[in-house]
Simulated scan of single mutants.
Amino acid sequence: MGDILTLLTVFIIMFLFGMTILRIGLYQLSYHRMKSLLALFADHPIKGMLTGIVVTGILQSSSCTMIITVGLVAVGALSFKQSIGIMLGANIGTTVTLELLSLSHNIPIWPMLVLGCILLFFRKPVLFGTGGILFGLGTMFVALHGFSTLAQPIQQLPIIQDMLAFTNLFPSLSIAVGTVLTAIIQSSTASTGIAMSFLNEGLFTMPSAIGIMLGANIGTCITAWLASLGSNQEAKLVAMAHIWLNVIGVLIFAPFLEEMAMVSGWLANTPMQQLAHISVLFNVISSIVVLPFLKQFTSFVLLVHGKKEIR
């Protein structure tokens, strides 16, 4: 058991390392432009949402987008109300990574790793950034395959068998698993990536995997909350609004895990792509439903946290 858990830890670290390299490459190419883009196009909720989608899709991290947003609100470049639209877009944009991961079995990994590694030795920002993107994605794909190879050995452990049986019997509990796991490793993509691999190998049922994905949407809010500590009132409200947005969305969808699993079967043929597509569907619906009620949602967050109306 110790060897299996050690390997699982190694693959998680490898996945997070790949994400870090990927983000370094993306930051090298676009970070400062994305920061300016957020500050410039958040004057209207729809524009803010579309900007959030683009920025998060490019940076491959909703947490990063929210950290930038918290920082912009803290220095007065954005208002709390303007940040809500960006927040909605960030939840949609983060699904791009999962869609890429769902294609890991169809992408030649080793050429990506070799070419990416070579490009990392160049000083030119475009070449270095491209190398970071290729090498980071390749490393994440290798980690996903690692999770898949561990699926069957892990399944043989009695304690894991009991846990999986319990989770598959009560899929709603997997939401808590996804929340805690994501809060610990600080990556909703990593948590959902693990669920993808285990789902593909038959350890999880689709409802349980969807539950972990939903929980990951809550757990990822911890990063922005930590970034808001020590900031002003508006910046803290941004982080709390992000938490409330995801908690409310998950609570609404939680009773329908079986129905979402059925819908996922209509969206794609492979389990990994089905989970990726249902993640897109969940985040798009959640954001679009909230968009017409931004004023009410903002008032709700202010009321819950005992704050007066702010700009």
Rank of each mutant, 00 (worst) to 15 (best):
G2S: 12
L5D: 10
T6W: 01
L8G: 06
T9Y: 10
I12P: 05
I12H: 06
F15V: 05
M19P: 01
M19Y: 01
M19N: 06
T20L: 06
G25F: 10
L29P: 04
S30T: 15
Y31D: 08
R33T: 13
M34K: 11
L38G: 03
L38T: 10
A39I: 06
L40P: 02
L40F: 02
A42S: 15
D43A: 14
P45T: 01
K47C: 08
L50T: 15
G52W: 04
V55K: 08
T56P: 07
I58G: 07
L59V: 15
Q60A: 04
S63K: 03
C64R: 04
T65P: 02
M66E: 02
I67D: 06
L72V: 05
A74V: 01
A77K: 11
L78A: 10
F80H: 09
F80D: 09
Q82G: 06
G85Y: 11
G85A: 00
G85C: 08
I92W: 05
I92Q: 05
I92N: 00
T97N: 04
E99Y: 06
E99C: 08
S102H: 09
H105N: 13
I107P: 10
P108H: 13
I109V: 13
L115D: 15
G116I: 05
C117Q: 13
C117E: 12
C117K: 12
L120E: 07
L120Q: 14
R123E: 07
P125D: 06
F128I: 12
G132H: 01
G132W: 06
L134T: 11
F135L: 11
A143I: 11
L144M: 13
G146V: 07
T149C: 12
A151S: 12
P153G: 11
Q155L: 14
Q155I: 09
L157G: 03
P158Q: 10
P158K: 11
I159W: 13
I159A: 13
I159H: 12
I160M: 12
M163Q: 14
L164D: 00
N168C: 08
N168G: 08
F170Y: 15
F170G: 05
P171R: 04
L173D: 11
S174P: 04
A176W: 02
V177G: 02
G178F: 00
L181T: 08
L181E: 00
T182N: 02
A183Y: 05
Q186A: 13
Q186M: 04
A190G: 11
T192M: 09
M196L: 15
L199D: 07
L199E: 03
L203D: 00
F204Q: 00
S208Y: 03
I210Y: 01
G211L: 05
L214S: 04
G215R: 00
I218P: 01
C221M: 12
L226C: 11
S228Y: 09
A235Y: 03
A241W: 00
A241I: 03
H242P: 01
I243D: 00
W244F: 14
W244H: 12
W244R: 10
L245E: 06
V247L: 15
I248G: 07
G249H: 08
G249E: 02
I252G: 10
F253L: 08
P255W: 14
L257C: 07
E259M: 11
M260Y: 03
A261G: 04
L281N: 03
F282I: 14
F282G: 00
P292E: 03
T298I: 14
T298L: 11
S299A: 14
F300Y: 11
F300P: 01
L303I: 06
L303C: 07
R311M: 12
